[in-house]
Design a protein around this nucleic acid. Sequence first.
RNA 1: GGGCCCAUGAUCUAGUGGCUAUGAUGUCACCCUUACAAGGUGAAUGUCCCCGGUUCGAGUCCGGGUGGGCCCACCA
Length: 792
Amino acid sequence: MLDKDYNAAEIEKKWQDYWEKEHIYKFDKNSKKKIYVIDVPPPYASAGHLHVGHALHYTQFEIIARYKRMNGFNVYFAPCFDDNGLPTEKYVEEKLGVNKNTVSRKEFRKLCLEANEEVEEIYKNKVFKRLGHSYDWDLLYTTIGKEAQRVSQTSFLRLIKQGDCYRREEPTIWCTYHQTALAQAEVEDIKRKTKLNYIDFKLEDGKKINIATTRPEFLAACVGIFVNPNDKRYSNLVGKNAIVPIFNQKVPIMKDEKVDMEFGTGIVMICTFGDNTDIEWWKKHNLPLKIILDKAGKLNELAMEYKGLTLNDARERIIERLRKEKILVNQEDLEQTVGGCWRCNTPVEYIVTKQWFIKTIPYKDELIKQGRKIKWYPDFFRVRYEDWTKNLGWDWCISRQRHFGVPIPAWYCDKCGEIIVADEKELPTDPLEINKGKCKCGGHFKGDEDVFDTWMTSSMSPQISVKWLEENKEFSKRFPVSLRPQAQDIIRTWTFYTILKSYLHFKQVPWKDIALGTFVLDAKGRGMHKSKGNVVWADILLEKFNVDTFRYWVGKAKWGSDIPFKEEELVAGQKFLTKLWNASKFVLMHLENYDYNKPSKLEDIDKYYLLKLNEVINIATENYDIYNSSEANKAVELFFWHDFCDDYLEIVKDRLYNPDSRGNEGKKSAQYTLYKILNGLLKLFAPVVPHITEEIYQVEFAKKEKIKSIHISEWPKEEAITERMLRERGELFVEVMSKVRKSKADSKKSLKDHVILTLEKKSLNALGNMIEDLKAVTKAKEIKEGRFKTEF
RNA sequence: GGGCCCAUGAUCUAGUGGCUAUGAUGUCACCCUUACAAGGUGAAUGUCCCCGGUUCGAGUCCGGGUGGGCCCACCA
């Protein structure tokens, strides 16, 4: 028997402990079942709270894991943490007040590792276990863990071998705050207001031309001037030289189609490097290099008297001087969008440094083809992937000038620059800890001080997760993996890089399916941001609502689209749990003396509800199979609440409470049907609300099915129901029942009040042996033949 | 500037060419019916954003707008 009331906290704890103790979610290496692997997004564990959006998304695919497990798959569901990279560094720097310039890489890494361990333990217990997630914790990996490092470094070595990875001195996107190179994907837009400055340049013959620029601080780095070849105003200028104000270097005037004649004066100066176009023209027209910026974003000696100033300070001082000398002839306000570091919003600069790159540009077309081999849910997100891939302008810069990350296993001769890399057998390795001795030129090999871009590791998450190198014999059984669930905002990074790596290493797609999760907005439909103060934290929410209530809300969220968060909507989940509890209590009460044998004859109305159960099983299964969990759940719930509780339970009450009036077979038929339907419903609900369904299942069904947990029981299957015109007759039954209820409501009668019911002959014939149940549920004293009518 | 998504009663939502548009929340009326009043039975509330087109038939398809959201590019 179930307790009178549903005690969520106690039940959650009880079953979470049980699942862990009994290893319910363990991946079975020796099983013959088909394997289903989920490529779980490694969460950053460094934040103190869990954003409700994350809690939703992680639960969303956890529901899929449960569905697949019940559906006969051997589910490989490895938890993970992304503890490698800038967020951890930032966390440690802020929390402990150290930074990468004041402590050594080794010490710093140690602090990071310690911080990780602490936070991950909290996360594991307070977030994932609390949410009732069904990971196999023995499969845990972290992106800074040994195996992840080994995979990441192995990938690097193999890509060098096959010619897809190279080191080159290149202008690189640079964050002057973090003092590291960035990938194109790490740059985000910043909108800002700035001034467009109209500056006079002298020509050699003493004439003047006027150039508009937003970045006069780069005058010292000016190496050329461009006009549009179709611009008649300036055709006479091409081939001449101009003299840069203040710094007096002579630069050539050239032509290029890309110059916008409408913008400013139609004359552009190019500097090394103020922006992307500068780099393009510098390469295309073979211009000299004048570097005036150091890694911290300060000007160097080429900027002469402005040496040591930041770009902003230099701009002010230079403008001041230009204005004084009347070289600055005009200033206009300008709305501008510039690239900024995605972590700190500092506008990015371009600096020439030696960096490692992985080739992407030559593979653009192939990567689009690979993307089409994957099933996208919803499909339109593939377009976003393809657009990004098409528009890529750079190879992927994978080195970062940071401390905490996977070290780059390479050494460079301090004399001749010779590069050597590690042997695969040595991995994982930290080149700063290994002495590679002398170069043949006599110089010494020095280990690379940089680390990999965090995506270098994350892009191998499917391979790390299924233990590519550790359990290589199993690899082909597990890879390509089944599903990548992820957020839509990292298609250009995580999705793209993972497809790239999988293609470069295996000439395969990394997953069969990719599904984009739900994004949570605030109640007004705006994104949740700490800075806006509208973030809802999951752990705080879980203090107010129990876990199954929260999960019920998650179960209603549609993959790939946004939902506004409204706390009132969680109340629906509470009501649902109460309803499920009470309905189950009722059913179990009436199963007490049930002998579990199928009765010799089932009542037709019982068959009708079994038929409806079949239908709902099919709808749920079909929808779950295409990651449409919200539709699956809505269908199941509608059947449960409306058909099962409101109608069917009312219909069978008479047979259950008064078996003698209709013969005991009628009661047995009802008991059989109740058992079937409730067991089916519990399983259909189990992925979403695992705790309450487990409790009810254990009280009644587990012992009968001899299964340890509902979560490893079999997903319900359709069972053959044969009866002529069953659906039509059942629908007619429900229709008549509703009409009687309406007439009682209209007459302000109670549902228990008796009625004399008149039905047309056609209906009476069709209902046949359902009449007795109709009579009982409508409390009809008698049912007569004639035009439809109710009398009290 | 380009691309993608969305627009359905007060609110959220189903609906991918066919009978009177789905469900939930909220509102109102009635009902303490032996699982549940955190319940039940009913009711009211919709120019399905606008304009045009295709069609026997459009919430659904096409074109054009308007409004919201997201992604990308970009202006020296």
